[in-house]
Design a protein around this nucleic acid. Structure first.
Lengths: 210, 210
DNA sequence: GTTAGCATGTAAGGAGTTACATGATTTT
DNA sequence: AAAATCATGTAACTCCTTACATGCTAAC
C-alpha cells in the first residue's frame, strides 16, 4: 500500500543521512565526501546518489534548504540544491545506527557503520565489530580448508593470491581485535549504561595504533 | 542477430573457463573452487553460476562430459553434470587471458586474472599488475587529498577508518611492486619471446615474501 | 567568448543475490 | 527410513553503473 518506490539500499541511505547530520550539503559535495569516507571500501555514482536523494526527499527524511547564506544565486533559480536532515530523518538515522545486523558486517555496510561510530551506542559498536570479526574468521576458515585440500595441485600464482588474501584478512582481524579491546576498556570504568548516547566529539585520539 | 542472451559478466566467464581448463568439473564443485580461488576477493552464488554454465553451453564454449569413469550413475539419469572445455572454449579463454583492460584492474577482475597468471603471457601479466597499481595509486591520491581537506573536522572513528583503508591499499601496492620487480627479473635473461606460454607448473616458489 | 569544471538529472540495462523448488546420495 | 548434504535449477527482485542530456559558473 504505502510502498513509495524501491528501497535504495540501506548503505547509501545511512551514508547520506549520516553525512547530512553533520552539515547540510548539495549532492555533488555529498558524493565527494562519500568517496573519501568510504575510501577504499566503495564509491557511489551520481546515478545512484541523486535518485536516492529524491527518494529520501519523498519520504520526508531530508528537505531542501531555504537559506542562501552568500547571495550567489542571482535571481529565482539556484543551481545548487542544498539538503538538510529533517526531524524524521534524524529519527531514521538513529534507528539505522542502532541496527547491528548482517548488513553492518559485509564490506560496504561495515565501512559506513564504522564511519558513524561516533554517533553509535557503545553496545552496538561492539556488536558490529564482533560481527565483522566472526564474518572474517568464517571466511578465513573456508579459505584455509580449501587451501589444505588443494595445496599440491595449484600453481604458484594461485597460491600467492590465496596467501596474500589470507594475510589481508588476518590483518583486518588484528585491527578489529585492537578496536574491540579498546572499546571494552572504555566500557569498564563507566558502568554499563542502558543508553549512553555519547556525543563525545573528537575527544578520543587513536589509542589503537599510535 | 545471434545475440544469445545477456553477457553474464566477463569475470565469471573467465573464472569458469579457467577452472574447467584445469580439469572437467560439475557446478557444485566449481563453486567451491571459485570461493577458494577468489577467496577474500569475491564469491558467486548458484543463482549466477548455473545460468552462466547454461549460457556457455549455448555458446559452445563448454560441453557436457559423456564419460562415467566410475559406474556411480545407476540407470539413465545422472545427477551430476560434468562440464569440460571445448576447443572454442580454449580459444575464448586465451582471448580473455590476453586482455589487459580496465576489467582486469578492479577488485573482482584482478583476482581472477591473477589466479590464471600461469596461463597468461608475460607481457600481459606485467600490464595487468601495472594497471592495478595505477588504479590503487589513483585511489590513494583521492583519499589523501580529501584527508588533507577535512582532517580537522572529522571524528576519530572516521579518521581511523581512513587510516586503515589507506594502509591496506599501501600494503597492496607494496605487494604489487614486489611482483612487478619479480616479473621484470625473469623477463631479462630470456629474450622477449612473442608468446612464451610457459606451463611452468609450480617451479616458481615465492620470491616475493619468503 | 570559449574551454573546463561544477552541478543535476534520467533511461536502459547489467550483474548478481535471495528465496524457493526439487531430486539424488550418503550417513546415521 | 530419516536427516544431512550434495546437486541443480529458476523467478523475482535489488542495487548500482554507464551513457547520455543539460545548464550554470569560473578561468583563461
Amino acid at each position: 500500500m504505502g510502498k513509495v518506490t524501491s528501497k535504495r539500499s540501506g548503505v547509501l541511505e545511512l551514508a547520506v543521512l549520516g553525512l547530512l547530520d553533520g552539515s547540510p550539503m548539495h549532492g555533488y559535495e555529498l558524493r565527494k565526501r562519500l568517496s573519501s569516507v568510504l575510501g577504499a571500501f566503495h564509491a557511489f555514482s551520481y546515478g545512484s546518489l541523486y535518485p536516492c536523494l529524491k527518494e529520501l526527499l519523498g519520504r520526508g527524511l531530508i528537505a531542501e534548504e531555504e537559506a542562501d547564506p552568500s547571495p550567489r544565486a542571482r535571481a529565482g533559480r539556484r543551481s545548487r540544491i542544498v539538503y538538510r536532515l529533517t526531524a524524521e530523518g534524524k529519527d531514521r538515522l538513529h534507528e539505522l545506527l542502532s541496527e547491528a545486523g548482517p548488513t553492518s558486517w559485509d564490506d560496504d555496510g561495515f565501512g559506513v557503520h564504522f564511519a558513524f561510530f561516533g554517533q553509535t551506542r557503545a553496545d552496538v559498536r561492539l556488536r558490529i565489530l564482533e560481527g565483522r570479526r566472526s564474518r572474517l574468521e568464517e571466511r578465513m576458515e573456508a579459505v584455509r580448508a580449501a587451501f589444505a585440500r588443494t595445496r599440491e595441485r595449484v600453481d604458484s600464482y594461485t597460491l600467492e593470491l590465496q596467501r596474500h588474501g589470507l594475510e589481508s584478512v588476518e590483518r583486518e582481524v588484528r585491527w578489529l581485535n585492537e578496536l574491540i579491546a579498546s572499546e571494552r576498556q572504555r566500557d569498564t570504568g563507566a558502568a554499563s549504561q542502558p543508553r549512553p548516547d555519547e556525543t563525545d566529539p573528537g575527544q578520543r585520539q587513536s589509542t589503537y595504533k599510535a
